[in-house]
Simulated scan of single mutants.
Amino acid sequence: MLLIRVKKIVMDSKSAFVEAFRARTKTAALRVIRLYQQLPKTGEAEVIGKQLLRSATSVAANYRAACRGRSGAEWYAKLCICVEEADETQLWLELLGDSEIFPKSKLESLEQEYLEIVSILATARKSYSGK
């Protein structure tokens, strides 16, 4: 009986983390959408902005798909995509600031958020044992 309770607590904790992280990636994607809406209407801002929009929304969508994965291998594959897309999102944010298309000071918290998202996803990916 005790073993079952302990396992349920662990599962509840894992489930809570999964739901919280799903919400976090969605919120981050919404922040990127709002940023995109504020970008100047120039050619380079549009190109980088669309790439940023695609990669950020891909993180949220693929994490959601990973949570619904039918196997460990499917979960791992989706997680790998999430790591790549989150890292790409960081690149586009850096380019927006470094090119002075958008003020770096207004990008800092979003850059930090995607740095943390990459770190969490990469750690989760490393934990996969292939079983």
Rank of each mutant, 00 (worst) to 15 (best):
Y36P: 07
L110H: 03
K7H: 05
I101S: 08
E88N: 05
A23Q: 11
I48F: 08
K8C: 00
V6N: 01
V32L: 06
Q38S: 14
E94W: 04
A124D: 01
T57G: 14
G130M: 05
Y63C: 09
L2W: 00
V6T: 10
Q90A: 03
T89E: 04
G69H: 02
S127H: 03
L115I: 15
M11H: 10
A66R: 11
T57V: 09
I33Q: 14
R22T: 13
E19F: 01
L107S: 03
P40N: 12
C67T: 15
K78R: 04
V118E: 03
V10T: 02
M11N: 10
D87F: 00
K14A: 07
L115H: 13
L95V: 12
R68S: 15
G130N: 05
S71H: 12
R22E: 15
M1F: 01
V32G: 10
E108T: 08
K131D: 10
S99W: 09
E94H: 08
E85C: 04
L91Q: 02
S105M: 07
T27R: 11
L121N: 08
P103K: 00
E108A: 09
E94A: 06
A77Y: 04
G72N: 13
T42W: 12
V6Q: 06
V18H: 04
A28D: 08
F102A: 02
R24Q: 13
N62S: 01
A56E: 07
E116I: 02
I81H: 04
L93D: 09
Q51M: 12
Y63W: 05
A77H: 14
V59W: 01
K126F: 01
W92A: 07
I9V: 12
E88T: 11
G97C: 02
K7R: 13
M11Q: 15
E44K: 10
E84H: 02
L53M: 12
A73H: 12
S127I: 04
R31V: 03
T89D: 09
F102C: 01
A77S: 13
Q90K: 11
R70I: 08
R125I: 02
A65E: 15
T89C: 01
N62R: 02
E85D: 07
I48Y: 06
N62F: 02
R5H: 08
S109L: 03
R64A: 12
I117V: 12
F102D: 05
C80I: 00
Y128S: 05
S119M: 02
L110R: 00
A73V: 06
I9Q: 09
A29T: 05
L30D: 14
A65K: 08
K78D: 03
N62C: 04
E44I: 15
E111A: 04
G49K: 14
R34Y: 03
K7M: 09
E85G: 06
G69W: 06
L2C: 02
K126M: 09
L3V: 07
T42C: 10
D87E: 06
S119H: 05
K126W: 00
Y128N: 04
R31Y: 03
K126S: 14
L53D: 07
F21K: 05
I117K: 03
L30Y: 06
L115D: 13
Y36R: 15
I48R: 02
A61Q: 10
L96G: 03
Q112K: 14
Q90V: 13
S71N: 08
K8R: 14
E116V: 08
A65R: 12
Y114K: 02
S15L: 06
